[in-house]
């Protein structure tokens, strides 16, 4: 009888260990966290005015001359952004060294960091998301970063291109963690840079080809943005954000 009890205890412990191991970092728990984060964010949005101030004050990316616009979007709503003077209202803020310019027949958003940082953030918050920017880097001295899940200067996720390297990572409480990085040839003409955040999976694409793939815990929904740095200009002619639906 004792022997059977010992066996039962052994298997119970094994089962519990397995269930625990599966739940750590698993999707269901992540989705639960995500749901909690979502509802938390909806509450936060009710206090948007106070929070925007706080967010911007805590912000980041060397923000100066922030502009607040009137364009409003629902949280998690996808969008396609084209640079016009009107569409600048979709931005939460931008630095002074960004302007709408004309390149050929098209309007572009021109980042002129000149050794500083030039950045802009879009208004709506996103959870699981795919963000694609169509851009051109004038020289290899330019560096660009697509941000997502940004909740402040010390907390965001990113894919970046700098010095012929694509990096995929996260800054959490000011500490940078690189999920993956790969050497690449950055096109001299227009190209698309995409980052996707699907659950605990993060990927960076260049011209729709996957270059980097990493994993990390799911973060709270946050803002999307672009940060340029270096001594060369970067032109952006389109930004598309696509919410990624959770599986059922």
């Amino acid at each position: 009888m004792m022997n059977i009890k010992n066996q039962l205890t052994t298997y119970l412990l094994i089962t519990l260990t397995m269930v625990f191991a599966m739940s750590c970092g698993g999707n269901s728990s992540s989705e639960h966290e995500h749901d909690e984060a979502d509802s938390h964010d909806m509450e936060e949005m009710e206090h948007s005015a106070a929070e925007e101030h706080e967010h911007n004050e805590g912000e980041e990316h060397d923000m100066v001359g922030m502009e607040h616009g009137d364009g409003e979007m629902m949280m998690g709503e996808g969008f396609t952004w084209m640079p016009t003077e009107e569409s600048m209202s979709m931005m939460e803020y931008k630095t002074d060294n960004i302007r709408v310019a004309t390149s050929g027949d098209e309007d572009v958003l021109m980042f002129e960091p000149a050794g500083q940082k030039a950045s802009c953030m879009f208004k709506n918050k996103q959870g699981n998301v795919g963000v694609t920017a169509t851009l051109k880097m004038e020289s290899s001295e330019a560096a660009v970063m697509l941000l997502h899940h940004s909740t402040g200067k010390d907390n965001y996720e990113f894919v970046s291109l700098e010095g012929g390297v694509m990096k995929l990572g996260r800054v959490e409480n000011g500490e940078e963690k690189i999920f993956d990085s790969k050497d690449i040839d950055v096109p001299s003409d227009w190209f698309t840079l995409t980052v996707t955040a699907a659950g605990t999976h993060y990927k960076g694409y260049l011209n729709e080809k996957m270059i980097t793939h990493g994993h990390g815990d799911m973060m709270k929904p946050g803002l999307l943005g672009i940060v340029a740095s270096g001594n060369s200009t970067i032109s952006v002619k389109k930004v598309e954000a696509t919410p990624l639906e959770a599986e059922r």
Binding site: G26, N27, A198, G199, Y205, L244
Partner: peptide, 30 residues
Amino acid sequence: ADSIGLNLKAEVAIGTHSDWGLYTLIYFGA
């Protein structure tokens, strides 16, 4: 999964399938 190119509609499902695949591997290995 790394070679199929960008497919935003399937992105979450790919990740979910990958996660369950890993759980299967760990569980049946143990």
